[in-house]
Nucleic acid binder design. Structure first.
Ligand SMILES: [Mn+2]
Ligand SMILES: [Mn+2]
Ligand SMILES: [Zn+2]
Ligand SMILES: [Zn+2]
Lengths: 119, 119
DNA sequence: TATTAAATAGGAATGATTCCTATTTATATA
DNA sequence: TATATAAATAGGAATCATTCCTATTTAATA
């Protein structure tokens, strides 16, 4: 069952890896794994809610942290950082003002990360 | 200069169109326009800051509204709605707590839009 | 008008992702 | 255990949005 390995690969990376990265990583353990298998298992893990997918510039990154949280992308090193917000009252703002029903959200901040702005 | 037409197509659509939609739309005026031309001009318009690009599920949508605003995507009809927030204090929250420098953000809410939830 | 630069059409190339299929492996059942 | 059934897999072909390339056309400039 290589789905386990795909899953643990994501969990251990702690870094929102791409399918390509995961493929290379799992390949170390199982040299004859194929891309088809990686993508199929990624899809199943997403379905089961064990991981979530983050589209970024048209390529998919995977996140083992399924708890609601947000992402900060550094313009310089392209790292993806997690962060959380104290309040999520912007949701109720939108529900009240626009009359949409909000079931989820994705907030992506960009800028310069704390590693890169030590100039 | 077909860049004008590509631009006005986006502006008139008011609906965050894809490259494919824009291609079809401009084709009505200039039947022999090519995809290469559409993409090249879209890239130039983005560079000039006249439009902005919104990646959604791996395909690019274009937005003629370059003023900072956010997007709500309906899970049912897949429409993309604009909305604005009163305060953007979540930016300072992140700057204070995570010590990143924020230069931009993209908030995407999903749910059921006010058209679709009239049940 | 002659030169140079920008724009274009058309299609090939790319790259991530999905799809397909024959084969292998696990699971259930008699 | 032997057999039937279902799930998983490798490998590669197909897809599809986007980018790249090139010869040709059009605009701008001296
Ligand atoms: Mn994350
Ligand atoms: Mn918009
Ligand atoms: Zn950085
Ligand atoms: Zn809707």
């Amino acid at each position: 069952m290589q789905r386990e390995l795909v899953h643990t690969s994501i969990m251990s990376s702690k870094d929102h890896p791409t399918a390509d990265w995961i493929f290379s990583d799992v390949k170390k353990e199982i040299p004859k794994i194929s891309f088809g298998t990686v993508y199929r298992n990624l899809g199943q893990l997403v379905e089961k809610g064990l991981i979530r997918i983050i589209q970024l510039d048209g390529i998919a990154h995977y996140d083992g942290n399924v708890a609601p949280h947000n992402h900060f992308i550094c313009n310089e090193c392209n790292s993806i950082y997690d962060f959380e917000l104290d309040n999520e009252d912007f949701i109720s703002q939108v529900e009240v003002k626009n009359h949409h029903h909000v079931s989820g959200y994705q907030l992506m901040l960009t800028g310069t990360c704390n590693k890169c702005n030590i100039n």
